[in-house]
Design a protein around this nucleic acid. Structure first.
Lengths: 259, 259
DNA sequence: CGCCCTGTTGAATCTGGTCAAACTAAGTGG
DNA sequence: CCACTTAGTTTGACCAGATTCAACAGGGCG
C-alpha cells in the first residue's frame, strides 16, 4: 500500500499515490517503522455521495481530509446566508488544514460527485508532525500555496469582468488537469453552472450566456458538462493572461531541515 | 529590549512589544541564550517612507518583515497591469511569510505612511525554527489566520454590494483597532479612497459617494482621513453582519508540542 | 502663492443581475 | 413504456447599481 519512491529532489513520495498525504513530501531517510506509522494514519477511508458534507463551519477540527477520487467544493457564508464557494478540490489535495488556528472548521466542504477520501485524525497528524519534523514545514508550503491561490481569486473577483473570469477559470482548470497528466483541452466539469458562477462572483445565467458566446466564437465546444478547449491562445487573450504549463504537480524543493 | 512575560496560556510574549515577532508566541522555557538569539534576529531595523516598496513580486525571499509602526499595503497584479490590494497591515503583523513555498515574493508591499519595520533574515528565521520547534507551528497558525481573512475578503468581493463592502470594511478596521486597545469608534484611515476602493473591488468615486451617504444618515462622521463611527449597530446592519469584539490580539492557545 | 494631489459631485452609459419562461435530460413510479 | 417530476441549463426582456468621464473643490507642500 505505502511505497517509497525516491525523487532526485531529495524527497520521498509516500503513496497510496492517489491519497493526498503524499503531498507532504516526506524527507529522505524514512524507515520502515515510519512508513508503517504513516500507513496507520491513512487507514480510515470513507465515501461521500454527491451533496454530502465532509465538515461544517464551526465543527470541531478532528480530521484532515485527503481526496483520493472525485471532487469537493469548499465554501463559506455571510451571516445572512449568502454563500461563496472558495475552491474546488481534486484528488491529491488536503482539506481542512486551515482550521489549525481556531481548532474549528471555518467553512464547509461538500462532495460534488461520489468522492473517496482518507480521513486523517488531527491527533495522529500532530503526532506524525512530532515524529517527522518536516511535516510542519510541508504544511507551511501547502498553506502558502493556498494563500497564493486565494490571492489570485481575489484579483479575479476584484478586477476582472465576467468574460475574463470565465476564460481565466477554464485556463486554470486546464492547467490543473495538465499537471496531473490529464488532457488540458478536454475534460468534464464536475460542478454545475450555478457553482461556477458562485465561485466566480457572477450569476449562473451569465455563465451560460458567456459559454454560448465562447462556443459561437469557436473557442470552446461544450456538451452539457463536457468541454473541449479548441483555442488556448484565444482563451488566454480573453482571460488577459499568458498560458503556461510550467507549474509541476508537487514542487519538491529541497527541505532545509535535512541539512 | 527583549523581555519575557509569562502568560497563563503557557506561552511567552517576546517583545520588542511593537515588533511583530512576538506574535510567534514562543513556548515556555525560553532561556536567556534563546532570548539573546531572538534579539539577534530582530536587530535589523529599517524605515520606509510613504510609497516606498518593501519587496516586489518575483524578488528572492530574503526577509520576513515585522511591522513596528506605520502601515503597509500588499498587492498583486494581473499580467496586463491592473492591481488588486490584498491587505492593509498594521504594527504587530508579519509580512512575506507566504513566499515560503516558491522562495519568491508573490506580490508587492508598499508603505502607506512612514513605517518602521524589523527585517528578519529568512536564514536566521529558519535557524530559529530549528532551535525552537514551535515556531513552525505558530507560523502555521498565522497563515491559517491569513487564509481565513482572505476567504472573508473573497466572500465580500463575490457576494456583497458596494454599501455592504464599505460598512464591512469599517467594522473590520474597528475590530482591529479594538483588539489593539485603540478606540474602535474613532481612527485615521492611512489609505486613500482609491486604495480602499481597489481593496474592496469598487471605484473610488463609489467609495466617496457611499461615505457621504453614510454621513448624511448619521452613521459616521468623516473629516478627510479621520473617521468617527457614530452607530456601530446601524453599521452592522448595513454590513449585514453582527458586530462583535470577541477576537483577541494574539490568541495564545496551548501549544501541542509542550506536552 | 500657485500647483498638484486627493477627494467630491454630477450625468451618461453599460455591464451584469433579476425575473420569468421554455427546454432538456434524467429519473421515478404506476 | 409512458406520464410526471425534478434539477440543471439556456434564452429573452428589463432594469439597477456601479463605472466612466468630466468638472470642480480644497488642503498641503514646495
Amino acid at each position: 500500500m505505502v511505497r517509497q519512491a525516491v525523487q532526485e529532489s531529495g524527497c520521498i513520495a509516500v503513496s497510496c499515490q492517489n491519497c493526498g498525504l503524499y503531498q507532504l513530501c516526506l524527507p529522505m531517510g524514512l524507515d520502515s517503522a515510519d512508513t508503517a506509522l504513516l500507513d496507520r494514519y491513512v487507514r480510515r477511508k470513507r465515501m461521500f455521495k454527491r451533496g454530502e458534507v465532509l465538515y461544517r463551519a464551526g465543527e470541531k477540527f478532528t480530521f484532515v481530509f485527503a481526496i483520493r477520487s472525485g471532487s469537493i467544493k469548499t465554501h463559506i457564508s455571510t451571516d445572512d446566508g449568502r454563500l461563496q464557494i472558495t475552491g474546488f478540490h481534486v484528488p491529491g489535495e488536503l482539506l481542512g488544514l486551515n482550521a489549525i488556528d481556531e481548532k474549528r472548521y471555518n467553512g464547509e466542504a461538500t462532495a460534488l460527485e461520489t468522492t473517496s477520501v482518507c480521513e486523517i485524525s488531527v491527533d495522529c497528524f500532530e503526532e506524525l508532525a512530532l515524529q517527522i519534523p518536516s511535516v510542519h514545514y510541508q504544511m507551511l508550503r501547502m498553506m502558502s500555496k493556498e494563500i497564493r491561490h486565494n490571492q489570485g481569486l481575489m484579483l479575479l473577483l476584484g478586477k476582472k469582468n465576467a468574460e475574463e473570469r470565465l476564460a481565466t477559470y477554464l485556463l486554470s482548470l486546464s492547467r490543473r488537469f495538465a499537471m496531473r497528466n490529464y488532457s488540458p483541452t478536454q475534460f468534464n466539469l464536475s460542478m454545475s453552472r450555478g457553482d461556477i458562477g458562485n465561485y466566480l462572483g457572477i450569476a449562473e445565467e451569465t455563465v451560460s450566456r458567456i459559454f454560448t458566446r465562447f462556443q459561437e466564437e469557436g473557442v470552446v465546444a461544450i456538451e452539457r458538462r463536457h468541454i473541449i478547449l479548441n483555442d488556448l491562445e484565444r482563451l488566454s487573450a480573453l482571460a488577459r493572461e499568458s498560458y503556461s504549463t510550467t507549474a509541476q504537480v508537487i514542487p519538491l524543493l529541497r527541505n532545509p531541515h535535512s541539512r
